[in-house]
Design a protein around this nucleic acid. Structure first.
Length: 489
RNA sequence: GGCGACGUGGCCGAGCGGUUAGGCACGGGUCUGCAAAACCCUCUACGGGAGUUCGAAUCUCCCCGUCGCCUCCA
């Protein structure tokens, strides 16, 4: 059963195969770096991290490009509104690049903690101004854009005579016009649905570059077209991003690519993949609603909706327990549930490594393994895959107690599957610290002392040790023949 | 107004015509010096109505409700 992915372009699942095997080109819209990374960023990053990991696991050589948007963009395509990064820079009285650098670093820090692998290439918009200008120049040359007072706009009316505008989002221009909130008056655009490729900069504008049309800065959509095509060519295999980017951002990207390269662009990417949003009490997180939660707040617990902090893997696990195309409703209750479930799974994983082989197998590892990969192949159904692992937790205990058995060969495959899927593909990591070995021997010593105390019926000492360890976040698990322990903080 | 989703047991969440999804929480029990853990048991749901079918959470229609996009947004 091959990997199938839901393609927004066709609105159905399609068997994935790259254009030029074994190479896969994947571009994902990264963050605009002007504020703290939040749960939405985490979900997008983790979703495509898993896809990245899985494609590599399947043997593809993946070039994964995820951009950093460090040019502030206007708050709208209208000719008004303030650049978000500039606004932040002005408020804090620092250079725009300081804002970009700071939030890029915070983004990296948060995503690293969540086990998100760095992409192969992480280009910045400001680092690719020439490529963007060149693309705009070609679009103008082909007649799909026009210049007005030092700004350049894509001429949607003209474009749609040759290409289908709205192919990704299912919009048509008439409907857009009917429902547009665009205000009449201030626009120099020919039609309300035209969008900016290049904007003229006022002399006071902090970030501006020379261009054939005078000093200015690029429009929001052009950077992704220019950078994706620069590193991956046209068309490339996979373009990803949040569901909220489908329109207008990705629709505009497709239009720019075709306006520049014509039919060769072939919808720019063959697979358009979108992760659904994170909601808080059923509503999308947004600053205007004041309900957004940053990744850091989840770690520290410093948020009104949280009573404590949670480790990064708890959040990663919560996200993975939902299918990426479903909305995920965030709450502390859900997060706590995910955290406990994650610990349970990791405990099982650690115990699995202590299982000893036998002369025959009492169940089929192969059949179970196939079900796990069938789930992953079914549009990356991580939730279903994880459920299959939970179903095995009791089997592991029975294996360890020699109530059921596996041959050395089957056991190896069984252990391999746990490692490959949970650790390598889903990117979960056991709750360990770098000081793990030291901790382990220290705790082992305490366990021994406590055991002696218990045998001597010195329960006061035994309980003192246990309670102290509990308060430090280390839980003792007394089995009849031994004591295991686990960290839960 | 247009486009698109979704409503599953206390909570999160798979599900794409016939199986107990699964996790977390709750309750009872076994075990334990006590507890935790582990194990066993209990809780068995699909917004409402009509239809198709031997059979529907899963398909069709209507209704109700929620949400996203159409401004920046992962």
């Amino acid at each position: 059963m091959p990997l199938e992915l839901y393609n927004t372009l066709s609105r159905k699942k399609e068997v994935f195969s790259p254009l030029h095997p074994p190479y896969v080109g994947m571009y994902v819209c990264g963050p605009t770096v002007y504020s703290d990374p939040h749960l939405g960023h985490a979900r997008a990053a983790i979703t495509f991290d898993v896809l990245f990991r899985y494609l590599k696991y399947l043997g593809y050589q993946v070039r994964y490009v995820r951009n950093i948007t460090d040019v502030g963009h206007l708050e709208g395509d209208a000719d008004e509104g303030e650049d978000k990064i500039l606004k932040k820079a002005r408020l804090e009285q620092v250079e725009p690049i300081e804002i970009a650098q700071r939030y890029t670093a915070l983004y990296h820090k948060a995503m690293d903690a969540l086990g998100v692998l760095r992409p192969s290439i992480e280009p910045t918009a400001t680092g690719h101004i020439p490529q963007q200008i060149e693309m705009i120049r070609q679009i103008l040359e082909r007649g799909y854009a026009y210049e007005v007072n030092g700004s350049v706009y894509l001429d949607v009316e003209c474009y749609r005579r040759d290409f289908p505008y709205g192919i990704l989002s299912g919009r048509n221009v008439e409907e857009l016009l009917a429902g547009s909130r665009e205000l009449e008056g201030q626009s120099e655009k020919r039609h309300p649905w035209d969008f900016a490729l290049w904007k003229r900069a006022e002399p006071t504008h902090l970030m501006q570059w020379d261009s054939p049309w005078g000093r200015g800065y690029p429009g929001w959509h052009i950077e992704c077209s220019a950078m994706s095509i620069n590193y991956l060519g046209v068309p490339f295999d996979i373009h990803g991003g949040g569901l909220d980017l489908v329109f207008p951002h990705h629709e505009a990207e497709i239009a720019q690519a075709h306006a520049c390269f014509g039919k060769e662009a072939a919808f720019q990417a063959r697979f358009w993949i979108h992760n659904n949003l994170v909601t808080i009490e059923g509503q999308k997180m947004s600053k205007s609603l004041g309900n957004f939660i940053t990744v850091e707040q989840v770690f520290t617990g410093k948020h009104p909706k949280l009573s404590r902090g949670y480790p990064p893997m708890a959040l990663r696990f919560l996200i993975l327990q939902a299918h990426y195309r479903s909305t995920l409703d965030f709450s502390e209750e859900a997060l706590l549930g995910a955290f406990r479930g994650y610990l349970r799974l990791m405990t099982a994983y650690q115990r699995l490594m202590e299982v000893r082989p036998y002369t025959y197998s009492s169940f089929s590892v192969e059949a179970w393994r196939e079900r796990v990969f069938a789930a992953l192949n079914d549009d990356l159904n991580t939730a279903a895959a994880i459920a299959l692992f939970f179903e095995q937790t009791e089997e592991i205990i029975r294996l360890r107690r020699q109530e059921i058995y596996l041959t050395a060969e089957d056991l190896a495959l069984y252990q391999l599957t746990w490692k490959e899927v949970l650790i390598d593909i889903l990117g979960l990591s056991p709750p360990q610290s770098i000081e793990w070995e030291k901790w382990a021997s220290l705790i082992g010593l305490l366990i021994q002392i406590r055991r002696d105390a218990r045998q001597a019926k010195n329960y006061a000492l035994a309980d003192l040790i246990r309670d102290k360890m509990t308060s430090l976040g280390i839980k003792f698990l007394d089995f009849p023949d031994e004591t295991l322990w686990e960290m839960y903080e």
